[in-house]
Amino acid sequence: MPDENFIQRLKNDIAARRQAGLGRELLPMTGHHGARVILDGQPHLNFSSNDFLGLAQDRDMAEKLAELCRRFGSGSGSSRLVTGTTRSTLEAEQALAEYFGYESCLILGSGFLANLTLIATLFSEKDTLLLDKRAHASTVAGVRHSRAGFHTFRHNRMGHLRKLLETYPAQAVLTESLFSMDGDSPDFNAVKCLKDEFGFLCIVDEAHAFGVLGEGGRGLAGGVADVAVGTLGKAFGMFGAFILCPAVVREHLIHFGQGFIYTTALPPWHGDMVLAMLERVRQCGEQREHLRRLGDLAREELSKTGLCIGGNAHILSLEVGDENRCQRLATKLREEGIVVFAARYPTVPLGQAILRVCLTAEHDVADVLRLRDALSSLIQKEST
């Protein structure tokens, strides 16, 4: 058995988190149907899903997956460098590269793994990296594993980035096209001007934009990013992730990327499903337009709750501040049959807790108005 002091230290860490209003719980869902989930045996309106286009619940895709599982089985049985790469995997990588406008592509197991592997593999203690202060935890983990020197620039502040570039010659700048918590985007015209002037490698995490934003869902950083990371677990309705990059970067990752080399490959049918889902994403123009209109409506209506609203697309941040209050509001909303994620430290900075609202193509106007009314009522009760 581990030393008792060690066990007590773990218990104390957990207790301190809970006391600070930062406790985390797993919510056991027993079913999904469109924008609804079944929780505690009851349907709940779900504003916490990244299934932005509703493809994870697509019946035709589910039937195709079942057919592929019957043909190929459930697992690959080895890493990609052994027998885990199928012809359809390579075809899917080529199709993704062509659709999003990059030279090549490499599929990995998850978005976190993709960012971690990419950054930790490409850079070393010889390099200097600049990253947005709100960069995703996977980006931060990759930077730390790389042992490169790094500095953070204030969130989306291109003027501050310029000052850092003038002070610290950097090999790369890392940012996101749609930030996962804030729901906002950098000025990519300004990023391009800085890139042209200073000559850095531009790496952009497009996980929350691909499939939804830009022409045909091609994201926001095309023509600016040298390397982009996308996920298959959000708008694509699946799992896994991909790195879009120059061919030499792909080759380098295959030779040196530990997160690629030493992990079991995705199932043998995964490439076929990626190809099918990519075709569906191409056809989702109506869903993208619906999301755009719904986002505009949600920003207007949710501002009536009295909370400050951040975000300019399908992810909205409702600023609460206090962690305990944020968790209370999320719990009360769940009692009203609405699931909204309370994002607290360390997901967001301490004292800057938010209610994170994710809109999907499965939501409608009535859903947004129901959230507005429920939240307004709860906030009004707080003041009485």
Rank of each mutant, 00 (worst) to 15 (best):
L291A: 12
T264W: 04
E286H: 10
P267N: 01
M273P: 02
R280F: 04
Q258Y: 06
E286V: 12
G295K: 03
I261E: 01
H255F: 07
R282T: 12
A247P: 04
G295S: 13
E289D: 15
R292G: 09
F256T: 07
Y262E: 11
L244G: 03
F260R: 01
Q258G: 07
K304Q: 15
L291P: 06
L278W: 03
Q283M: 14
R288V: 07
L297A: 11
L294T: 04
Q283Y: 01
E279N: 12
M273F: 07
L294Y: 06
R282K: 14
R288S: 10
E289R: 14
M238P: 05
E289I: 04
L294W: 10
A241E: 06
R293A: 14
L278S: 09
L275Y: 08
E279Q: 14
E301G: 01
R299K: 14
K304C: 14
W269V: 01
M273D: 03
G285W: 03
V249E: 10
A298I: 05
L266N: 05
P246E: 04
I243G: 02
G240S: 06
P267Y: 02
R292T: 15
G259I: 02
K304V: 03
F242K: 03
G237D: 00
A235M: 03
V281K: 01
R282E: 11
C245K: 02
D272C: 04
L278Y: 06
E301T: 13
L266G: 02
R299C: 08
K304E: 14
R292K: 15
R293D: 13
E286I: 08
E251G: 13
E286T: 12
Q283V: 04
L278A: 08
R293Q: 14
F256A: 09
L253H: 00
L294M: 09
D272A: 10
R293F: 06
M238H: 11
V249N: 05
C284W: 06
A247S: 08
E300T: 11
L244I: 08
A247H: 10
E289G: 09
F242N: 00
G237Y: 00
E251M: 03
Q258D: 13
E300N: 12
L302H: 10
T264E: 15
R288H: 14
G271Q: 01
T263Y: 01
Y262S: 10
G240C: 07
G237C: 01
F242W: 08
L244V: 04
H255W: 03
E286W: 13
L253E: 02
F242C: 08
G259F: 02
E279D: 15
L291D: 05
G271Y: 08
R280H: 12
Q283E: 15
V248H: 14
